[in-house]
Structures are given as structure tokens and as C-alpha cells.
């Protein structure tokens, strides 16, 4: 066996064969196999996306009477912290005053709360830099300060200083009554 060299190859000397037709069938077979293999990849990729029970995770209802003025309560929502902050009149005023200040991600305070309920600021509590949880009341603007890389947010949750690119995100929520809010 060891002294054998491979000899036989496809004999090119058969005139009756049309080389283009011969090649076509191989190319078609290889293409079909490759296409099939590529389609098979999708289920294996898609299984890592959130499953149906994760997507159906309940929305939360929250009783606002638990939050005193000037304070914040953090609850867990979809595995992440959610800030529910009862802003004082001074904090609201400070946020509105800065509406036209230069910012990385300009936004009006009024667009970050519901009309008539300006004291309630509800935000997803993960820093838009790399996902740490900013601490309440820290930083030069009295909003939040992220301990990981020093991003500072104002009392409307807007990014004012540091590496974070965006304001703290707003979840979908609605007031069910004056004291009850439903998030998600």
C-alpha cells in the first residue's frame, strides 16, 4: 500500500461529455448542500434569543406612595434595576433650567416625564456606558453618579459628564392612578 501512488483521475478523453453540463451538476449539488447547511445554522443561532417565557415576563405595577419626596426606590424589572424617583421642586427646577445647556444627548426635561406628573422620574437604572448601576444623588448635578467610570447624570437622568454616550433610558410605563404606575 505504501508504495502506491494515486493514479486514476477523471478521464478527460471522452468527447461525448459536455464539460459545462458536467460541471453544472456538481456546482448545483455543492450549492444546494451549502444552502442547506446555512439554513440549518439559523435554529442554532435563534435558540439563543430570548425564549417565549422570557418575552412574556410580566409587567410590574408599583405603588408610588412608597417613595418619599426627594427619594428613590429601585425595583427589579426584566432582570434590571428600575429607578423610581420622586423629585423635589428644586430638582425639577434644576433639570428644567438646563434644558438648553450643551449636552451629549440633548433632551427636554418635559419629554422625560409624563405631563402633570413631573415629580415622577422613572428610568432604567443601567449606565449607558457599560451597564453599571449609577448611585443616587451623586455627581455635580445631583442626579446619579456611576461608580465604574465616573459618568454623571443630572436630575432628569441626562448624561452631563463622563464616558457614557446617552441619557438613562426610559421604560414604557403608564399611570393607572395618581398612586399606581404600571411599567412594561
Amino acid at each position: 500500500m505504501s508504495n502506491l501512488a494515486v493514479g486514476a483521475t477523471i478521464d478527460p478523453g471522452h468527447a461525448s461529455d459536455d464539460p459545462s453540463r458536467r460541471d453544472f451538476i456538481h456546482i448545483a449539488a455543492i450549492a444546494a448542500a451549502a444552502g442547506g447547511a446555512a439554513s440549518v445554522a439559523w435554529p442554532f443561532i435563534d435558540q439563543m434569543n430570548p425564549a417565549a417565557d422570557t418575552l412574556a415576563l410580566a409587567s410590574v405595577e408599583f405603588d408610588l406612595t412608597k417613595v418619599m419626596e426627594g427619594m428613590q426606590v429601585t425595583i427589579k424589572w426584566r432582570g434590571k434595576p428600575l429607578f423610581i424617583r420622586n423629585r423635589s421642586a428644586a430638582e425639577i427646577a434644576a433639570a428644567q433650567k438646563d434644558d438648553n445647556a450643551p449636552m451629549k444627548d440633548p433632551a427636554k426635561d418635559a419629554d422625560r416625564v409624563k405631563a402633570g406628573k413631573e415629580q415622577w422620574l422613572i428610568l432604567i437604572g443601567t449606565c449607558t456606558h457599560l451597564g453599571c448601576v449609577p448611585t443616587f444623588g451623586g455627581g455635580d448635578w445631583g442626579g446619579w453618579f456611576c461608580p465604574c467610570h465616573g459618568s454623571q447624570y443630572d436630575t432628569a437622568g441626562r448624561i452631563r459628564k463622563g464616558p457614557a454616550p446617552l441619557n438613562l433610558a426610559l421604560p414604557d410605563y403608564a399611570f393607572l392612578s395618581d398612586t399606581k404606575v404600571k411599567i412594561g
Binding site: 439559523w42 435554529p43 442554532f44 435563534d46 435558540q47 434569543n49 425564549a51 417565549a52 417565557d53 422570557t54
Partner: peptide, 13 residues
Amino acid sequence: EHIMRDVNYGWLI
């Protein structure tokens, strides 16, 4: 059963 019911294409896999 979670794989069979909730995971995307879990039943197939």
C-alpha cells in the same frame, strides 16, 4: 419541557 415549548426551535433541536 421549557426547551420543547419556549426556546426558539427548541423542539427541533
